[in-house]
Design a protein around this nucleic acid. Structure first.
Lengths: 173, 173
DNA sequence: GCCCCAAGTTGTACTATGCAACCAGGGGAG
DNA sequence: CTCCCCTGGTTGCATAGTACAACTTGGGGC
């Protein structure tokens, strides 16, 4: 057998991320985030065949902002408008959202969750939450809140980086 | 009780993840991980058009274990063997890995990184590391190490859950 | 009124993926 | 030794998600 398990797998299960240096910590974070990202989509599809990760996110956004245009979704999630258009078409056909023609600008379709969409979103959210809760069960509350704040902080940094990278000038002027 | 809507957008940007409860923390973690996962792939592709997230992961695994079979990769990453086969074919054609016919079992191709593959992997790892470092710059070392350990802990739980789910009986007998 | 811009849709192409069918080699039962 | 079945891998097909480009429709300035 080629069981050359001589590798130092600092990241596997009972990794001692206690005495590590900042560099090593960054390395571990990178690896773990990568592993997580790779798994996430497939795992999400397995869990909710009806609602892909992107669709879920779009529905969530609609609920959060209470209706917006496809263009807004595209901008917010760095997706092409054609991609959003097809996703929206699918969500519409599935009865999860509806497109209301903006009376003031007939180019615009304002997207709104339907009751069904709201229900499905709640359902998926609930089951996602349950899954996360299971994975995070047994964590001290202190760790949970810290983890949450780290994720927020990390994503904020990542988002900031993303939005300052594109060549499209921000409409600050 | 279908009124899970108690937690509303506690999570946006400058969220106060300080005094939150465990439930809210789980909610935030879920949302942030979701957001991260959604972004990760596209962001990775933008960064390294030559090496997708999956390819990168596969190369990394090969380096880590020092060569293995396609089947091992498929099992380890919950991918279909056809998917791995195609990825491996691409990596082989790109000269990043080589397939060595196992002299003991001619069904088996043992995959090894080529020098080029090692170099590319190092390159991509370096630039990924730089990106993460940038996002994590300014974090106190204590937070970094804690974040790292949280990610490890979370992924370990997620992995455990995944590997105990499938209906395929474990080959313990 | 004409031209350009903005919002969306559609055509096309490409990648990643899975399932199923298949091919090839290995190993045990007869 | 031959046959069968299992395992590792490839290939055919289908699907989802995505981007880019061309097009359609509507709005607004000149």
């Amino acid at each position: 057998m080629a069981s050359e398990e001589s590798v130092r797998r600092v990241d596997d299960a009972g990794a001692p991320a206690d005495g590590v240096t900042a560099d090593a910590a960054v390395e571990i974070i990178q690896r773990e985030m990568t592993a997580f990202a790779r798994r996430a989509r497939a795992s999400a599809e397995r869990m909710h065949p009806q609602l892909s990760l992107v669709s879920y996110t779009l529905l969530g956004h609609l609920q959060e902002v209470g209706g917006c245009r496809a263009t807004d979704l595209a901008a917010h999630y760095s997706l092409d408008k054609s991609t959003v258009s097809r996703q929206v078409t699918a969500l519409d056909r599935a009865g999860l959202i509806e497109r209301r023609l903006d009376p003031e600008d007939h180019r615009v379709h304002v997207l709104h969750l339907t009751p069904v969409g709201t229900a499905v979103l709640a359902l998926v959210t609930r089951s996602r939450r349950a899954l996360f809760r299971e994975r995070l069960s047994g964590w001290p509350e202190e760790d949970l809140t810290r983890f949450a704040s780290y994720m927020v902080r990390y994503n904020a940094a990542a988002t900031a980086y993303e939005t300052e990278q594109p060549e499209a000038g921000p409409p600050v002027g």
